[in-house]
């Protein structure tokens, strides 16, 4: 069973970008069963920018599933943005999931935007001022909803889709000081609470492609500035043709601390 997953995040669309991705997107039916968008679809989260996303990523021959990113929240027009995307046939996840029938089996995708907070031993705590507690509770609430959504899906293969990172591995290249704004370990914990096959995220524009959760789930940072192509394609499954294994693996996952 092999499911072909295309993914990209952080396309930050506005009028000046419309059309740049489309030629590559037209090739999707030949190489992927689904396209995942890992948030930051827009620059400021306006309805007008969402229409650019709908124009660029709507009407494709493969299903498109997305989460929103922090940029998509900037102008407080989330309901309008979601409506424009859904009207274009794009599935928007936030604390829920979807199961798609693919040639290789039923693909379950659970998604949340996620939030910052930091990683084990170097993270914010639910303690002190109300602002600090609200920050950390936003993180834990988001992770709890991701975990529940992942565990609720009845499918053959499970994928987690977030904007913020569940692991520090894929942040390598970003300044260490800003890791707590780029992701949180609770997202990784949620991913490890279910039999997740792959976790895909964006947000860390200067990060690294590969990592794994403490539970061994593969994590991929698909932020457009990281992958430097219209999208990446992952073939996930247990019967792979080893001749086809791509040589991308040289960079490997890096830990920025030991």
């Amino acid at each position: 069973m092999v499911i072909r997953i295309a993914a990209v995040g952080d396309v930050h669309l506005d009028e000046d970008v419309v059309g740049r991705f489309r030629p590559a997107l037209e090739e999707l039916p030949e190489c992927a069963d689904v396209l995942l968008l890992a948030g930051d679809l827009t620059r400021h989260g306006t309805e007008a920018e969402a229409r650019c996303v709908a124009e660029e990523f709507g009407g494709l021959a493969v299903p498109v599933v997305t989460v929103l990113g922090n940029h998509d929240h900037q102008c407080d027009q989330v309901p309008q943005v979601v409506k424009v995307l859904e009207d274009a046939g794009i599935t928007v996840l936030e604390g829920n999931g979807v199961v798609l029938d693919c040639a290789g089996g039923r693909l379950g995708i659970a998604g949340v935007k996620g939030f910052g907070g930091g990683f084990a031993g170097r993270c914010a705590s639910d303690f002190g001022e109300p602002e600090m507690k609200a920050f950390v509770r936003t993180t834990t609430d988001s992770a709890d909803r991701l975990g529940a959504a992942l565990r609720s899906l009845d499918c053959d293969m499970l994928v987690a889709l977030t904007h913020y990172s569940p692991v520090p591995d894929t942040l390598a290249g970003e300044p260490l000081e800003i890791y707590p704004f780029l992701g949180s370990y609770q997202l990784g914990q949620a991913i490890d609470s279910a039999p997740t096959a792959l976790a895909v995220h964006g947000h860390a524009h200067a990060g690294t492609e590969r990592g794994t959760t403490p539970g061994g789930v593969r994590v991929r940072n698909v932020a457009h500035p990281v992958i430097k192509q219209a999208y990446s394609v992952f073939h996930v499954g247990d019967q792979l043709d080893t001749d086809q294994v791509s040589p991308i693996g040289q960079s490997g996952s890096q830990r920025s601390w030991s």
Binding site: R4, R20, E27, V233, G237
Partner: peptide, 14 residues
């Protein structure tokens, strides 16, 4: 300016 061409390689995740 980030390139936006289709990928030339896939990644296999067994």
């Amino acid at each position: 300016v980030i390139r936006a061409q289709a990928p030339t390689e896939i990644e296999q995740l067994p």
